[in-house]
Design a protein around this nucleic acid. Structure first.
Length: 266
DNA sequence: ATGTCAGCGACACGCTGA
């Protein structure tokens, strides 16, 4: 089975690139993040014509996640256990955002997640990020079962180690590299998940994201923040994993590249 | 040089989020 994850940065702006990539890469399941469209507005017909069913969790302008598959779609679950919402400083109430969806595809349990960015360490969005990661851990603990392979794939907005950013000195005051964020990843691993580390098809480190600004992609000023966290059964079946940086090239790319995993599951 | 991009409300481009 080929299973992939891709922060597509708007399915409306990227539908052509998505259909082209599905044709070339032929994944059996694809976790998408930042679709930026409501569930009812998802391009089901175009994706269906390419051979894929879609489970979608989205409300419109921001965020939004989906799982596409040609291996059968079952037991779709939207949102996390006790998922926190984001409460902006001037807002009266917090709002839960569409950032997580789970589904079983061809016997494999998959979650597509878009972890909150955090913005800055002193922002309320940073605390929201940490609380959201705790809810993700609770959900993983509830979902892990011995009878089916399991993986959480998505944009975690955390670089697991200093080597996962182009220059750690540039991140002295930044989110994505702080100990509390990395501790949250460590707790996911302690719950029974392993980081499926992909091959880089060029350069040394398999970055998955390059900012649109400052020629970051040609200069390879990237970050590895799109991760595949797999349980023991899934991880044991991994035959190959790589970042498809070709998808970051050319006209109208997303700022993220897909992570592709080829896995044999009994 | 912020060497960027997307969506929104509104219909020109500033604002927000990344």
């Amino acid at each position: 089975m080929r299973i992939a994850t891709w922060n597509i940065n708007s399915i409306g702006a990227r539908l052509g690139r998505l259909l082209e990539w599905l044709e070339v890469a032929q994944p059996d399941a694809l976790c998408l993040q930042e679709i930026k469209c409501a569930e009812a507005d998802f391009p089901y017909d175009e994706v269906g014509a390419a051979g894929y069913e879609a489970a979608v969790h989205g409300t419109g302008r921001w965020n939004g996640v989906a799982i596409l598959t040609n291996a059968g779609l079952q037991d779709v679950r939207r949102g996390l256990v006790d998922e926190p919402g984001y409460q902006p400083p001037d807002a009266m109430v917090s709002a839960v955002e569409p950032r997580a969806i789970g589904a079983t595809c061809g016997g494999v349990r998959l979650w597509s997640v878009y972890v909150p960015n955090g913005r800055t360490v002193d922002s309320p969005h940073y605390g929201y990020k940490l609380a959201w990661l705790e809810a993700l851990r609770a959900t993983v603990r509830e979902e892990l079962r011995p009878d089916r392979p399991f993986a959480v794939l998505g944009d975690f907005n955390i670089a697991p180690t200093d080597a996962d950013v182009w220059d750690i000195a540039e991140f002295a005051e930044s989110t994505h590299v702080t100990p509390p964020e990395r501790d949250a990843l460590a707790r996911l691993r302690a719950a029974g998940l392993a980081d499926v580390y992909p091959r880089a098809l060029k350069y040394d480190v398999p970055y998955t994201y390059w900012d649109y600004r400052q020629l970051s992609f040609p200069k390879n000023r990237g970050m590895r923040i799109d991760l595949v966290y797999a349980d023991r059964a899934f991880a044991a079946g991994v035959r190959d994993a790589f970042v498809d940086r070709e998808a970051r090239k050319g006209k109208n790319p997303s700022d993220h590249a897909p992570v592709v995993v080829d896995v044999d599951l009994g």
